[in-house]
Write a protein that binds this DNA or RNA. Structure first.
Lengths: 238, 238
DNA sequence: GGCTTGGTTTTGTGATCACAATTTACCAAC
DNA sequence: GTTGGTAAATTGTGATCACAAAACCAAGCC
């Protein structure tokens, strides 16, 4: 996006002044960084410098500062006392808390979404789930992370999005960098999910089964790291 | 805080360089605004201008911009497409979602906190609850909001704070401006809470009763507005 | 060798400026 | 009185600069 020419020239193209959110540089930087974090391109522990990001994205430090503040507020990044910002490190306790929060928020979101999932949307979810499985078969970690996220967010995101979705997104931003690392470590082959089980529960309008499937999906997916996994992960990052 | 002289001079006073977070202006502005929002000094719908806040707090626009970005990220404020920031308006749907999210998050937080609440902490919570009741008796709305928040946050805030507490705080930031308005409208006398019931449940280590009390506390406190209340609230803000 | 000590470099912070977009004010025309 | 359009004021955005704090690095000391 960063072109010296003003980015707002194209507003001339929208005749009757459609809202057409003219994107600011700050917003653009924010989205770039968020996407990078969610797709696991940021390693836990790495420190993020203002001027570094600014140079990388070819913008001035000003919009970067604001984007970083936003991400810190959403707990995607961590601000230390020394005025330095870094990608947060994961701990056993934090992971347990994240799992608990995910179960709590996402089962609630699924329950809210359930009545609004019609057959068209259900078919779409089945298609997305196929793409998740394809990514696993192709051993494409990047695609897996993207598809996996797309499946969950599409599931929950049917109206009523203003309160719950930002909370869920904040939690995802917190575990995504770690998840990339963990899957890199244990291998894509050991990935399991309960997506099909959840969709079958949707078909039966069985809220109980839906909650159960989602809870299992979270706990088996994120919370199933054995002690040995942790040990080798920790020595790896040193 | 804004004094022309550098605020960091006082670091000379801390001899062995205690971390002693030297506060930045941006952080200070953020805290001022957050406290103002949580204590109901911001009316829903009011638009917040950068230079206005800067003048009010006697700082340059730069730190204000970052503080506002943070608050927008935490959903305390709302950024519109016209690049304008305002205190979000409440709707019936949003309030229902907020109640559901509060129940979900705060019962979980209470359950996590329960094992860590010893007799000393319990006594402290009883004392805080007394202060809530005092505020109601004195019809002091400002004190009530402060004490009420202090009670809940002290309750949940025993270790394990890094994931759940920010989520809870974000939700509180979203309903606080409205709560002030609503209580202003229905009167302080009609305030009820289940704090004592919750504390008794803690004494019995009865998780089920604790969750029940907290859910009732939320639903009766926030979610009990009748249709008539909404109508008059809406006409009032026009 | 480990630790301090000095200077250099890097980095975040905050103020200011220029600019563009938006809103507001105002005046003319119907 | 209402509408339409232009000018002025307000406001957010982004770049740049000066400064202070922190991190870095290398030589020196115990």
């Amino acid at each position: 996006m960063p072109s010296s020419a003003s980015t707002r020239d194209q507003t001339l193209l929208s005749p009757i002044s459609i809202p057409e959110t003219t994107i600011t540089r700050q917003e653009w930087v924010y989205r770039q960084l968020k996407e990078a974090i969610l797709s696991g391109q940021f390693v836990p522990g790495r420190s993020v410098t203002l001027r570094g990001i600014a140079a990388m994205l070819d913008v001035s430090p000003t919009p970067v500062r604001e984007a970083l503040r936003r991400l810190v507020a959403e707990r995607a990044l961590e601000a230390h006392g020394n005025r330095r910002i870094s990608v947060p490190q994961m701990t056993r306790e934090k992971l347990a808390d994240i799992c608990a929060a995910r179960v709590s928020l996402e089962t609630l979101a699924a329950e809210c979404a359930l009545p609004a999932i019609d057959s068209k949307r259900l078919a779409h979810l089945w298609r997305l789930n196929e793409q998740v499985d394809e990514a696993v078969e192709n051993r494409d970690l990047g695609a897996y992370l993207r598809r996996h996220r797309e499946f969950h967010f599409t599931f929950y995101d049917v109206g009523r999005t203003s309160v719950l979705m930002p909370l869920i997104e904040s939690v995802w931003l917190q575990f995504s960098p770690f998840m990339r690392l963990a899957i890199d470590h244990i291998g894509v082959d050991y990935l399991v999910d309960r997506h099909a089980e959840a969709l079958h529960a949707v078909e039966r309008h069985d809220i109980g089964a839906l909650r159960f499937a989602l809870e299992a999906d979270v706990r088996e997916g994120l919370g199933s790291l054995t002690e040995a996994d942790w040990k080798s992960l920790e020595t790896e990052t040193d």
